[in-house]
Design a protein around this nucleic acid. Structure first.
Lengths: 330, 330
DNA sequence: TAGTTTCATGAAAACCTTTTCATGAACCTG
DNA sequence: CAGGTTCATGAAAAGGTTTTCATGAAACTA
């Protein structure tokens, strides 16, 4: 079995209290013994048992990350920011994905009970308030990209609505009046916000929306492809297609080319997220840049601060800036 | 603070031993008390403290996942398979990324000490043997896509060499003789294997390789773009470009189109991995299909079995099948 | 020098479970 | 009915750490 503090104490011929003092406090212990303990610990390769430490301190050194269904570059980027920042603070990450319903999230929350010191939750399909109604540990929780009105809950988000409104303004400014829209997942808060941006920009410009131009999707490439096929098959086909995210835009792009049409001369195309691939489509994709990695980094940053200061940040809600990036697809 | 087994015992008017028995063994306890305990536990919302359980049982219920730098769809897919399978076995995942050097991996290994019951390590830049030379907990370890000769080490991999050899044969069969190759990361085992496949297929066909046709890369879209620019700028430009993975093929595709050339009529293009996007490039990308999600799933499966049976699988090395998928880019 | 303060040190308690052990009571068996 | 089993139950130990408390020695102060 593993080497314990007892082994170190025996080897250094001191009591376990002294060993613990040397390894933690660093005060009130004679140089002689300190050196003996340090040597013994090193020679034996002693590492404190985290379970024992945690039992005593009720601190775990881990952060829980709860995500919805993970796919595509968005999450890889997000996790990158999360992990790098967490490692900087010497935290380990406990990650659990595929939580789309309240049910699943509740189970995950229970599974993480007492195993983590804080939680980062991205739950675009659910409201933050409903998550917190569940019985839960009173550890700090930071929500990301989740619907949340309550100012007592810490939230990091980005402007799904404004980004898509801005992008729609851009497309309208290009002279388009029949603009197709490929929706995101039905239950997703961010998808609804993006659609709202699309609609409001139309209203602003005094453009009526033909509801047939709004087709379903679920953020996947396949759904973007299918959505575009549907839009292009319409009698009076749109001159521009706005996809709810980059993945579905990439799918749409392939459908447009399959139909023998050119982007942007026949059909303009836009995405949302600005994943790395968006710069490498042909033509490069006009999209709404979301600082995904920074989003992950900042979320963890805030969570670490919540844990340290024992209270939620002020202001509790923070929104990252997004920015329209016009490339060759419009 | 949290509700403990004592609280449940007090509330149910029994000893803590009885509570523990009801919640675990389920034997040798009267119906009367069983019901009382169950009700009390439910009403108080009791969840056993994992640290205390772990301290006693020296089991944690967590699996450690150590990955290299994570980016792109490959890892999102892999994690999908991993997480879904782990959840099925009621395990939590402790994930740590960005371990490319022995140094970093050693630190991560130390950080996970006694926090996990098993480890899944993907370390294409290092050998499995060198990782195990580090002092480490004697928990089961499964390596994925890592260089490893030792038959005493459990390994799941896929045929990087054979896949690329097969794909190269396909390209050669199309009549190409000047075939550019965009390398993966210098230290990466899988990248070296893929290059070896490229070379051996040439040798088989009696084709000499012009070393100028092999350019550096690092699996990123940007590096694929840059590599293609370099290849296309050569005096005698290649008629086909094989990228070491799909991401760099996507980058290369954009560079080819920027140069005003057509795929596949001017330049054929291939990738490796078959990430979801590969079907939605224009034209769709010929690539080597790797069952990435299954790879993740199987790896965790094997790890769970190692933990349960307390020994490594027989045979210890397992290779997933890959398959050339010819699409419109060749 | 007597009294007080500082300081290094080890013993022991606490954190929360699970599991072993001991104790009776109720139940058999011959 | 006496001796032996089974069985429900609670007390206590163990798991590895940190922290408090007690102890005694050494260092000060008046």
């Amino acid at each position: 079995m593993g080497v314990t503090i007892r082994d170190v104490a025996r080897s250094a011929k001191v009591s376990i209290s002294t060993v613990s003092r040397v390894l933690n406090d660093k005060c009130n212990v004679s140089d002689d013994k300190r050196v003996r303990v340090e040597n013994a610990a090193r020679d034996l390769g002693y590492i404190p048992n985290p379970a024992a430490q945690s039992l005593h301190s009720s601190r775990t050194g881990s952060l829980g990350i709860l995500l919805p269904f993970v796919s595509g570059e968005f999450y890889a980027e997000f996790l990158n920011g999360v992990d790098k920042t967490a490692q900087g603070g010497d935290w380990l990450l406990m990650i659990s994905t595929s939580h789309n319903s309240e049910e699943e999230l509740r189970a995950a929350l229970k599974g993480m009970y007492r195993r983590v010191d804080g939680l980062l939750i991205m739950a675009p399909n659910i409201t933050a308030e409903s998550v917190l109604l569940q019985p839960h540990d009173d550890i700090p929780i930071v929500f990301v990209n989740t619907r949340c009105e309550d100012e007592a809950i810490s939230l990091i988000t980005f402007d799904n609505y404004g980004g898509m409104r801005e992008m729609t303004r851009h497309v309208i400014a290009q002279g388009h009046t029949r603009i197709g829209f490929i929706r995101g997942p039905v239950m997703a808060f961010d998808a609804a916000e993006r659609e709202r941006g699309y609609r409001d920009a139309h209203a602003e410009a005094g453009l009526a929306i033909d509801e047939r131009l709004i087709v379903p999707g679920n953020y996947s490439q396949q759904s973007g492809h299918d959505g575009a096929v549907r839009l292009l098959g319409q009698r009076e086909r749109p001159t521009a297609i706005m996809a709810s995210n980059d993945d579905s835009a990439i799918g749409a792009l392939s459908a447009i080319r399959e139909a023998g049409l050119d982007v942007p001369s026949d059909v303009a195309l836009t995405g949302f997220d600005d994943v790395p691939s968006a710069r490498f489509t042909v033509p490069p994709l006009s999209t709404v840049h979301v600082p995904v990695r920074e989003l992950g980094a900042r979320s963890i940053q805030v969570l670490m601060e919540c844990i340290q200061t024992r209270r939620i940040p002020d202001p509790p809600h923070f929104s990252m800036d997004v920015e329209v990036r016009v490339r060759a697809s419009t």
